[in-house]
Design a protein around this nucleic acid. Sequence first.
DNA 1: AGAGATACCTGGGAGC
DNA 2: TGCTCCCAGGTATCTC
Length: 274
Amino acid sequence: MPELPEAENIGRALNRVLTGRRITAVEVFTPAMREPLLPLLEAGLPGHCFTGVRRRGRYLVAELDDRRGLLMHFGMSGVVRVEDPAIPKRKHEHVFIHLDDGRAFRFECTRRFSILKVCRVPEPGAWPEELAALGVEPLTAAFSGEMFFAASRGRRGCVKNLLMDNRVVVGIGNIYATETLFAAGVDPRREAETLLPEECGRIVREARRILRRAIELGGSSISDFLNVDGTEGKFAQELRIYGRRGERCPVCGKTIEMVRLGGRSSCYCPGCQR
DNA sequence: AGAGATACCTGGGAGC
DNA sequence: TGCTCCCAGGTATCTC
């Protein structure tokens, strides 16, 4: 499922492929994914050019030349491709945006958790208001041990939910939160308020290291075919604890356990994580 | 107000 | 075999 590293790689590839392209036509095959798709037809997109693609959290904005943009989020099953529109439509492809090079930007999403909508871009390079409430980017200096420690004060919920709260820090979902807390040696159930400054430092350091590594491993996307399914990417081979309930911990050999936190399953090692 | 629960959606796997 | 049930996931929205 696409988290920040996958969105980053898709964004880079789309930036290469879409920038400078003019939209010639829009086709919509499904009334809605997470939000209605029909507005895409009524937005007057044909004739406008893409000027660049940027990422914020797990969202991408493909900016247009008229202070608007295409805002997209891949949910958990979103896949985008830029390819020949004559290739027969796949079962769960919902939108084709035809381009002036004869190809089409094609959006597929089996579970329809994705978003694809037109947004306003207040000025070139700015973020749309839909993204205003998002927290800090984990790969910028704004995400620090001090910042995470401050965010944890007064939080009675568990540390894993704090790490996955996109109002605090964006782009960290269940897989990366699980791996980060294992690497940092912190139990996912720990009440956030009880974290020590050095534990927050370890969590931030490990989150950044793991996200960077995952971006590297996803960096092999082909420029005109963009698969967003992170579970099939190379990083899946490096998961040390996610999805490994009942197996032995790779560090201490104890049996990996699982709990449900915030409605999501969370694997952890009772020996390594405190 | 904060935090937990729920709905959204489909395919795949388990169990009977 | 074919059916039912449960699970996966991020986010918006609800409920307490």
